[in-house]
Simulated scan of single mutants.
Amino acid sequence: MTTSQYISLYSISAFYLIAGISHFLSPGFFLKIMPKWVPSPKVVNQIVGAIEVLLGAAIFFDETRTLAAWGIIALLIAVFPANIYHYQLAKQKGKQVMATLVRLPLQALLIYWAHSFI
């Protein structure tokens, strides 16, 4: 692995570890943007946080890297409706509209980043 690949690996691992932990430290943020149709939002938030922590750790190791990368891709696809919902809320309130809009295509870049470890 090259130096830039190691930097990318450490970065993606840290990104998902921090994101996962934030589900437990700041659940209100995530619960606020969760679509109303999601059952048991608090439990779902904790599950997503735990999955992000698990995937962030798993991508770090050679033995689990490919599976973790696929898991990250699946997770990004699964949470995409919440990002659309967050954008719709922002648009209704007239706040953070551009930030939430830009976030939508960023999902594709995050998928590409995870795919680079397959």
Score class of each variant (00 low, 15 high):
Leu75Glu: 07
Pro41Cys: 05
Leu17Ala: 02
Gly71Ala: 04
Phe24Gln: 02
Phe15Leu: 13
Ala19Gly: 11
Thr66Cys: 06
Tyr10Asn: 00
Ser40Gly: 00
Leu55Ser: 08
Ala78His: 08
Leu54Gly: 07
Lys42Asp: 15
Ser26His: 14
Lys32Ile: 00
Leu25Asn: 01
Ala68Gly: 02
Lys42Asn: 15
Leu54Asp: 01
Ile77Leu: 14
Trp70Gly: 00
Ile72Gly: 01
Ser11Trp: 13
Ala14Trp: 09
Leu75Met: 13
Ile73Ser: 04
Leu9Ile: 09
Lys42Phe: 10
Ile18His: 03
Leu76Met: 15
Ala50Pro: 03
Glu63Pro: 00
Ala74His: 02
Trp70Leu: 10
Lys32Glu: 12
Ser26Asp: 12
Lys36Phe: 07
Ile59Glu: 09
Glu52Gln: 14
Val44Lys: 08
Ala14Tyr: 08
Gly49Gln: 13
Ser40Trp: 11
Leu9Cys: 08
Gly56Asn: 09
Ile12His: 13
Tyr6Lys: 12
Pro27Lys: 14
Gly71Asp: 04
Ala78Asn: 03
Ile7Ala: 08
Ile33Glu: 01
Phe15Ser: 01
Leu55Met: 11
Phe29Pro: 00
Pro35His: 05
Phe29Cys: 00
Leu17Ser: 00
Ile72His: 04
Val53His: 13
His23Pro: 01
Ala78Glu: 04
Ala57Ile: 09
Ile72Arg: 03
Phe24Ala: 03
Ile33Ser: 01
Leu25Phe: 13
Val79Phe: 12
Leu55Asp: 08
Phe60His: 12
Ser11Gly: 11
Val43Ser: 11
Glu52Cys: 11
Ser40Lys: 12
Ile18Gly: 00
Lys42Leu: 10
Val79Cys: 06
Leu9Tyr: 14
Glu63Gly: 07
Ser13Met: 07
Pro27Gln: 14
Ser26Ala: 15
Ser26Trp: 15
Leu31His: 06
Leu54Phe: 12
Lys36Ser: 08
Ile59Gly: 10
Ala57Asp: 02
Gly28Asp: 10
Leu76Cys: 08
Ala58Pro: 02
Ile21Ala: 13
Ile21Lys: 00
Met34Pro: 03
Ser11Phe: 14
Leu67Ser: 11
Arg65Phe: 04
Phe15Gly: 00
Ile33Thr: 08
Val53Lys: 14
Met34Ile: 03
Gly71Met: 05
Tyr16Asp: 01
Phe24Val: 01
Arg65Asp: 04
Ile72Leu: 15
Gly20Ala: 06
Ile7Met: 09
Met34Arg: 06
Ile51Gly: 04
Phe15Asn: 01
Phe30Met: 05
Phe61Trp: 09
Gly20Gln: 05
Ile73Tyr: 13
Ala74Arg: 04
Trp70Ala: 01
Val53Cys: 15
Phe61Gln: 05
Lys36Ala: 08
Val38Trp: 14
Thr66Asn: 10
Ile21Arg: 02
Trp37Gly: 00
Ala58Met: 06
Ala68Met: 05
Ala50Leu: 15
Ala69Lys: 13
Gly56Phe: 12
Gly71Cys: 04
Ala14Asn: 02
Gly28Trp: 15
Pro39Met: 10
Ala50His: 11
Gly20Ser: 03
